[in-house]
């Protein structure tokens, strides 16, 4: 009996450690993604369920201060312009702790969105729970989600394209190709692509 309870404890520990690792790793393409309820720059709460007509979403973890995020701002606006009408709106989320990076405070998000003329929600992941669950590690970090009956399925994870420095020298547009494939009901060729970026400023 003593041994049995020991085994039980061991099993519990094993379960806890496996789920902890899974949590740390975040989503993989094919996983179900969770919805969220985060504050937008207009003070209203936004959830993915608020977009009944969307076919899916281009969720981008980004922020104000990171030079790589800044290099992509115009391209993120262009993505929203190209794909919102087609059913894949951009949802931008700032996951950074403003105590660690004051440039990424909620007030400064409002200013940045206004200056750049963001056409999409720019949400604040104050508890960092969504970034952690999704497995975002750096900014910008994109997750393309597809609606499938009542679920949201992760279809692409990673970089927006393969040249942060120069938009006119990009040779592979990862996110566009992924969404185009989804719209054409074809298999996505590249489901993950990595890029250098700023570490998310964790609490």
């Amino acid at each position: 009996m003593k041994n049995l309870s020991k085994l039980g404890v061991l099993l519990c520990l094993l379960l806890i450690s496996t789920s902890a690792t899974l949590l740390e790793e975040g989503y993989q393409p094919g996983d179900k993604a969770r919805d969220f309820n985060l504050k937008n720059i207009d003070d209203k709460m936004v959830s993915l369920k608020d977009f009944p007509d969307a076919k899916g979403f281009i969720v981008i973890f980004t922020c104000n201060h990171c030079p790589f995020s800044k290099m992509y701002e115009d391209r993120i606006i262009a993505l929203d312009a190209a794909y919102k009408e087609k059913g894949y709106p951009v949802i931008a989320i700032n996951p950074n702790d403003p105590v660690k990076q004051p440039e990424d405070s909620f007030d400064k998000m409002i200013v940045r969105a206004k200056d750049k003329g963001f056409t999409f929600p720019y949400l604040f992941d104050e508890t960092q729970e969504i970034a952690k669950t999704y497995g975002a590690t750096n900014t910008p970090h994109t997750f393309v989600l597809e609606k499938e009956s009542n679920d949201l399925i992760v279809r692409y994870i990673g970089a927006i394209d393969n040249n942060a420095k120069a938009a006119n020298e990009v040779s592979t547009k990862y996110v566009e190709s992924a969404v185009d494939a989804l719209l054409a009901d074809k298999e996505i060729e590249k489901k993950r692509a990595k890029a250098i970026g700023c570490t998310i400023k964790w609490k």
Binding site: N162, A164, S171, K194, A195, C198, T199
Partner: peptide
């Protein structure tokens, strides 16, 4: 090397690209 996806995995497969 700014086409990052071509080499990040070769440094370390678990690396998503965040620095440091």
């Amino acid at each position: 090397e700014t086409d990052y996806d071509t080499w990040i995995d070769q440094v370390e497969p678990s690396w998503q690209g965040a620095i440091p």
